[in-house]
Design a protein around this nucleic acid. Structure first.
Lengths: 223, 223
DNA sequence: GAGATTATGTCAGCAGCTGACATTTGACAA
DNA sequence: TTGTCAAATGTCAGCTGCTGACATAATCTC
């Protein structure tokens, strides 16, 4: 409802000068916002400050982001889209758990590269902590994560040929893996000097702990 | 951060005239807010409208609720407190799952009575749907629910003598039961004419489905 | 009934956000 | 190149949520 971006997303590596310029100001706004949020805090940063930093009117800011929160969570969108794309491409022969695992591990480089095109990873990490300590941001992120989990659940159910309403296994699996991701990234966000590689390892470790509990044949033999 | 109530909670069945009056305006504000939210929608209701309905200044509204959302979620507080109290009183002999089950079933009458002292149950039900369809409210409720789950997890870990950080079983159990509660109340919120009893039955049914997966001896034999 | 607390009202003001309209800037064809 | 169109931006006026400061009125205590 208040989430939609005011302006249609320009294709990332867009063609025209116009589109490129648009992408540039969008990135500049995201960067400026994140820099200000991480240094002054989310609530103590005004939209005017962000707009001024990019030399753009406040009104323009709101044409790119429907509200202040969206600027703080802009990179989450990016991550979600890449992850979903990656998941959809996993071969049907993989078990659901393995598909999720590979989707996470496989996209991570891609994702961190995409992040780095906008802001340094270190800034993203600091922003992560700001999100966790700002109730408004935490709330919104939780809701969006839950929406994300629904999408993933639907995708898993689809590839396994299950009814996502009747069969709770996809939902449980996704919730569990989601929990692992959160635990891993939470841990990652805290250790200051840790690299991206650390995060990947942490995820894989935590996940293998859960594996036995989540493994099993789902598809009916006939299918 | 923005969640704390501006004014200290008056004791529910408080003594003085002053305290009683305070409780009355608080309830009146909650009721007016819920009535307006359910008829006009959350976003299309201004705080001024709510204040006017109770014949109170806007400033006074903000002395009772730190923001508009809190007025919409006021009853959740009430429910949470009663539930936690109920859980803490469960005998140590019960299994964690049974303790949670009994805490839910046992408090329900108490809770619905407490709700009914403020608003008719039917209004609460309609409000439930408004919350689910209003992103801002849904977000905040999710965060608060997660905080609530942490409290419950800590309590379960305490009574079982487990370390809530090391041992994930309490967390998993609470997450699962939380999921059941949400599913049951979601279902309840949709069926228009259903009574409270329906809800209780729905919860118990869904829970027994999960029981086998969640049962087991947690405490070490020596303890 | 006097004095101390506490709730309420009033007012001024900031920040988030929006609609409306004018202006500029890039896209594209003649 | 130039003219035309569409899209991006700026400006401005205005609403709503929310807060601090201070004055007033209602309760409580003795």
């Amino acid at each position: 409802m208040t989430d939609t971006v005011a302006t249609a997303q320009p294709a990332p590596g867009a063609s025209g000068l116009r589109a490129r310029k648009k992408q540039r100001t969008r990135d500049a706004l995201t960067r400026a916002a994140m820099e200000l949020f991480t240094t002054q805090g989310f609530e103590h940063t005004t939209v005017d400050e962000i707009a001024d930093a990019v030399e753009v009117s406040q009104r323009t800011f709101f044409r790119y982001f429907s509200n202040k929160e969206q600027a703080a969570l802009a990179l989450e969108d990016l991550i979600e889209e890449r992850f979903m794309a990656s998941l959809r491409e996993r071969p049907a022969t993989e078990t659901p758990l393995e598909a999720l695992r590979q989707a996470v591990l496989g996209t991570w480089d891609d994702i961190s590269a995409a992040i780095h095109e906008v802001v340094p990873i270190e800034l993203y990490m600091r922003m992560y902590q700001v999100i966790e300590s700002t109730p408004a941001l935490l709330s919104t992120r939780m809701r969006r994560q839950s929406e994300m989990e629904q999408r993933i659940t639907a995708e898993i159910a689809r590839r396994e040929g299950l009814d996502p309403v009747t069969d709770l296994r996809p939902r449980v699996l996704v919730a569990a893996v989601g929990g692992v991701i959160q635990a891993a990234s939470g841990h990652w966000g805290q250790c200051e000097d840790d690299s991206v590689e650390q995060m990947r390892r942490s995820f894989d470790e935590h996940l293998t702990t859960l594996t036995p509990a989540l493994t099993g044949q789902w598809r009916t033999p006939g299918a």
